[in-house]
Simulated scan of single mutants.
Amino acid sequence: MKRLVRNILRSGWLQRAVGGLSAGFLRLVWLTNSFTFDPPEVYEIVEPQMPAIFAFWHGQHFLTPFIKTKDIHRAKVLISRHRDGEFNAIAAERLGIGTIRGSGDHGSAFQRKGGVGAFKEMVRALEQGYNVALTADVPKRSRIAGLGIIMLARESGRPIMPFAMATSRFWRLKNWDRTTINLPFGRGALVGGEIIRVPPDADAATMEQLRARLEGTLNEATKRAYAQVDRAPEAGHG
């Protein structure tokens, strides 16, 4: 029975159907929530510095495709090769976002999960003028920023743009990253954090310092985003 369920979940027709439905639902959520931006001139600040690396927490990713508002905002997003990633990849592509498949994990499974190839592809995408979006968390360790995104900024020379998005209406799952399912007909907030640049000659101590700074600014942006929609932040995070 488990094998049958696994085969059904891996079937292309189901993945395309779920991905397409997800994209449609997310459009509804975006169009029916009234969003504020903090700072209000966030696009005027960010656009001159593109292409950039957009960083956010895992589990808060569903509405991120909608920060792309103009044709000049060419973007690709890193999505895992895991089965669940197929649904996310199809939804992202339906919403006009390119995908890079692989893991952001820089641990023992990095090469096995396609991390090396994905890292090189992200560097190439930035060189070609694409913004690259990815979660900052260490896999399976929610709200702990990893060094992978810092390494990408050092290698590419592009700035990291941390941000958080929240809506007043949502469901929060009880999984490892406390995934937030944003719901329609409410209010939303997009909050930008401190822009982080990594010197090309950054040593291990500097990299760790910037990793901790990224973690702190993402937590602060998340706290502010929830405050702006009058909702409490996640337990243990603000």
Rank of each mutant, 00 (worst) to 15 (best):
M1R: 05
K2L: 04
K2P: 04
L4S: 10
L4F: 14
N7R: 07
N7V: 15
I8R: 01
G12W: 06
W13K: 11
R16C: 15
G20K: 01
R27Y: 00
R27L: 00
L28W: 01
S34M: 12
T36F: 07
P40Y: 10
V42H: 04
E44H: 06
I45V: 11
V46D: 01
I53G: 09
H58I: 12
K70P: 05
S80F: 01
R81P: 11
H82D: 12
D84G: 11
A91E: 00
A92S: 12
E93S: 00
R94T: 00
G96W: 13
S103K: 00
G104V: 03
H106D: 15
G107Q: 12
G115W: 00
E121S: 03
M122P: 02
Y130K: 00
N131A: 03
V132E: 00
A136V: 10
A136H: 13
D137H: 14
V138E: 08
P139K: 03
R143W: 15
G148T: 09
I150R: 04
E155F: 05
P159Q: 05
A164H: 11
A166S: 14
F170Q: 07
D177Q: 02
R178S: 12
L183P: 01
P184F: 10
I195V: 08
A202Y: 05
A205S: 15
T206F: 09
T206W: 04
E208F: 13
L210G: 03
R211I: 07
T217H: 10
E220T: 11
A221Q: 04
K223F: 09
Y226E: 13
D230Y: 14
